[in-house]
């Protein structure tokens, strides 16, 4: 029963939460700055993705306690993302192909 149950998850010091919390604000500020300074092109995209994944990673690892979970759970949660990665990759290719065909046949002509 509930009262007989042993504590399953170890508690953590409050400091770590506050640290991550602060880091999230800083990272959000940085990604906002990407827009503020109006970086363009590859630099913009890579910075956006970098900050995005860093923030997501921090939230998952510490706020959602994935860092302290056993590998069985972590792996079960992360491997399916390869399917999404594949989907994303192929849709990038597909999007490029579509816009290419549209511009080529609808605007340039001379096919």
């Amino acid at each position: 029963m509930a009262e007989a149950k042993k504590e399953q998850t170890t508690t953590h010091k409050i400091g770590i939460y506050l640290w991550i919390w602060g880091l999230l604000f800083v990272l959000s500020f940085f990604s906002y700055m990407v827009d503020w300074y109006n970086f363009q092109g590859l630099l913009r995209w890579s910075l956006i993705l970098f900050f995005m994944f860093l923030k997501a990673g921090l939230i998952m690892a510490f706020f959602m306690h994935l860092f302290w979970e056993r590998y069985a759970l972590v792996n079960v949660l992360l491997w399916p993302m390869t399917a999404i990665a594949c989907f994303v990759g192929l849709m990038v290719a597909e999007g490029k192909y579509t816009v290419f065909s549209r511009l080529f046949y609808f605007f340039v002509g001379g096919a």
């Binding site: 594949c86 192929l90 290719a93 597909e94 192909y97």
Partner: peptide
């Protein structure tokens, strides 16, 4: 099975390289 879906779409006009 998550990496094969577009074999239903060979003649759908998607990017032919797929």
């Amino acid at each position: 099975s998550f990496f094969v879906w577009a074999h239903h779409m060979y003649v759908s006009g998607m990017s032919p390289w797929f």
